[in-house]
Nucleic acid binder design. Structure first.
Lengths: 210, 210
DNA sequence: TAGATTGTTAATCGATTAACAATC
DNA sequence: TAGATTGTTAATCGATTAACAATC
């Protein structure tokens, strides 16, 4: 099996392209080009073609790309031709926000279970999902064959929760806790670090100092 | 003025190093090394030294780094030796979560005003900040000399809000709306794209296909 | 001094950009 | 055919890693 390594930046851009194509399709436009896409998302046309070239030939020389087709191809590449079951751990404000975030369901991410340590929260409903105690995390996540865990607990609890999620068989974790998690290499991990993002901004605002 | 360009990846890592050093300092440890830091945050020692070398010499050969000193140096580099005023626009669940996020205040990011388009929300309090109408955004943000805007409105409204923030004089925008914003080059912009992050995970989980 | 660890240079690796032949 | 646009190769640019002299 060919394991050509693909830049992560390419994957991020593909996700953005697909969202752009959804918009373009909604406008009823049939055909587009690397130049159009590039303009729509703020990259170069060569970048668009290079990114797509990792996965095949989706266009027609002299013509461009069929919008619907290309969109479908990219969704399939990203693994979005099927739904994904997600366990969310930590029903604080951020967990609540993510649980009710429309964008996830639109892309096929279904939050099938929510867990929290706070007895006050257990049994309450978020959307149509009941908040369950952490003690049920492994059992329920296993039962649902859930592939993805989202961690929105405080930093101090995050490693323990990640360990439980992995024990429950998830293949990927999206971590919002501001800590470096220790995770076996076969588990996919991404960190969304809210303060780090602000700090890149403040560095750049003052960057003329260097 | 020397304008040595510094990789964005370096800035992100510096932020993580500083957080790690806060922990180490809390444990009462006086001296550390690039090897210790590297182990703590999951990078190589050479990477740590290289990142620091962009900004000066902070260590002692044969000895290592003073924890408190290095932490302070990094915070200053990141622009965190002063507080930053933040305007948050969009008081939905995500806006609420960010408004009450302890981690921001801990690093010197003070949310000084919150705006929303929903008349139902206007006048309600989030923490000790009153939700104001969008019509007041420019005036209040200017008055406060706010440097940073956080956008947590729906995608369709995001560009308009970004324009207003820029008109109000912010220097940086953290955008959570899943759209590509059009922003003048002198304004710093970072996008936190929640679905894109999940999609990088699903791609990687299925990546053996390529 | 001997051992440890930095700061820095050179080598490697990887990603982006530019150019253009292929082809609709 | 002439014009347009892809797919792909080569050139460039940038970031990471490895190695080591400096030095505490």
């Amino acid at each position: 099996m060919k394991t050509l390594k693909i830049p992560e930046a390419t994957i991020i851009r593909l996700s953005v392209y697909s969202r752009h194509l959804t918009e373009v399709d909604r406008k009823g436009i049939i055909t587009t080009s690397s130049g159009n896409i590039a303009e729509g998302v703020g990259v170069s046309p060569a970048q668009v073609r290079k990114d797509l070239a990792y996965f095949g030939e989706f266009g027609t020389r002299g013509v461009g790309y069929n919008v619907k087709d290309l969109r479908q191809h990219i969704l399939r590449i990203l693994g979005l031709s099927v739904d994904w079951s997600v366990s969310l751990v930590g029903a604080g404000n951020l967990g609540l926000a993510l649980s009710t975030y429309k964008g996830f369901r639109d892309r096929g991410f279904i939050i099938t279970s929510i867990f929290d340590a706070d007895p006050q929260k257990i049994g309450t409903m978020i959307g149509n999902v009941e908040v369950m105690p952490i003690e049920k995390l492994i059992e329920v996540t296993k039962q649902n064959h859930t592939q993805i865990g989202i961690v929105t607990v405080p930093g101090a609890a995050a490693q323990e929760i990640a360990d439980k999620l992995i024990k429950a068989g998830v293949q990927a974790i999206l971590n919002f806790a501001p800590v470096v998690l220790n995770i076996p290499p076969e588990i996919e991990l991404r960190n969304v670090d809210l303060t780090v993002n602000l700090e890149v901004l403040t560095f750049n605002v003052g960057a003329q100092r260097f």
